[in-house]
């Protein structure tokens, strides 16, 4: 049986703020097997970016990361910065949401694509250049020679995102974290980028953690999906099951408002970012204020992430792959739920 490529245990991210610590991510655990494409879905502010950055300890100095992250069996969060750097960019590549702000405005994109190779492979800039050109053309960029000399502001949004992807793929990482790679783009470009990722997925043995607020995007690419709300994972499962039979009320609302491939900033009823600071997090289920099925027990204690149904194959492993965090699916709660409130 193959070992998971990434195993995350009880991941937590706390941001230090004037009002105190804010738990942006709390108690997240999951595994990613080699070659697997996993989606992480949640509305804006649910902690997706915090979670994905924390995997490489990239959150800003105000963010404290807790828990364990095993990459290939190594707990990388306990490594000293010096050793952790060997994983960043080399074993794990990252694509960011906003290619404009995440690209350095005063460096040519050539330099920005080449530098991780020069850094990790200790090759010359000349050698790195060869591969950068190859990567750019792989990304479908024509005229890559000229593009190499250009600066981010000279490029269109689509090209910028392709540059970002080339950068992340430069050292052929084994895991790619793509944080909302399509969000900043318009619909046609979104589609192109998704196609691109699909191609990459087919061509390379790389695993992908695809972060998005858009279930449709995730449906295009992923085998498995994790739904996040308020810093917690509230449901996981195979992509088809999730669409066919969303269990958690939040997931259900996501599936319901996501009829087609449409890039409208869809919104749930209720406020946007669930909580802005600690004191706002309610006792009990975090979704209670927006839940249509809320009951008394929901306000008492927080439900745990519960395995539902039998085990199945996830990637190369036989494991529970359907989990949900809702009182309605807790042991012995199902019947009670049927009673009207």
């Amino acid at each position: 049986m193959e070992k998971p490529l990434l195993e995350v245990k009880d991941l937590a991210v706390n941001f230090k703020r004037e009002e105190g610590f804010f738990k942006a991510v709390e108690g997240i655990s999951f595994k990613i097997w080699p070659r697997e494409v996993v989606g992480l879905v949640g509305e804006s502010g649910s902690g997706k970016t915090a979670a994905s950055l924390s995997l490489l300890n990239l959150t800003s100095s105000r963010g404290k990361v807790g828990g364990e992250v095993f990459f290939d069996g190594v707990n990388i969060l306990t490594l000293p910065e010096r050793k952790l750097k060997k994983f960043r960019g080399r074993q794990i590549g990252v694509i960011f949401q906003e290619p404009m702000t995440f690209l350095n405005p005063v460096l040519t994109i050539g330099v920005q694509i080449m530098e991780p190779m020069v850094e990790h492979w200790k090759i010359s800039w000349g050698q790195a250049r060869e591969r950068a050109l190859y990567l750019l053309s792989e990304m479908g960029i024509k005229d890559s020679e000229r593009r190499m000399k250009e600066y981010p502001h000279q490029l269109s949004g689509g090209i910028r995102q392709r540059v970002m992807i080339s950068m992340a793929l430069a050292c052929s990482p084994r895991l790619l974290i793509a944080d909302e790679p399509t969000t900043a783009l318009d619909v046609t470009l979104q589609y192109q980028i998704i196609e691109l990722l699909r191609r990459i997925r087919e061509k390379t043995p790389m695993a992908i953690l695809l972060v998005s607020h858009d279930l449709e995007v995730v449906r295009e690419l992923c085998d498995r999906v994790m739904i996040m709300y308020g810093g917690r994972i509230v449901e996981t499962g195979g992509i088809r099951e999730i669409f066919k039979d969303p269990l958690h009320p939040y997931t259900r609302s996501l599936v319901e408002v996501s009829p087609s491939f449409e890039r409208v900033a869809w919104r749930l009823p209720g406020e946007d970012a669930p909580f802005s600071y600690q004191s706002n997090i309610p006792a009990g289920c975090r979704f209670q204020h927006r839940c249509s099925r809320v009951s008394r027990e929901c306000k008492g204690a927080e439900p745990s992430l519960k395995e539902i149904g039998g085990k199945g194959w996830i990637g190369n492993s036989f494991s529970f792959h359907r989990q949900v965090r809702c009182w309605k699916y807790q042991e012995g709660a199902l019947e009670k739920d049927e009673k009207p409130l």
Partner: peptide
Amino acid sequence: QDYIITARAKGLG
């Protein structure tokens, strides 16, 4: 700035 996160994510010294 965001691009500093990018630079760190690349594993640069």
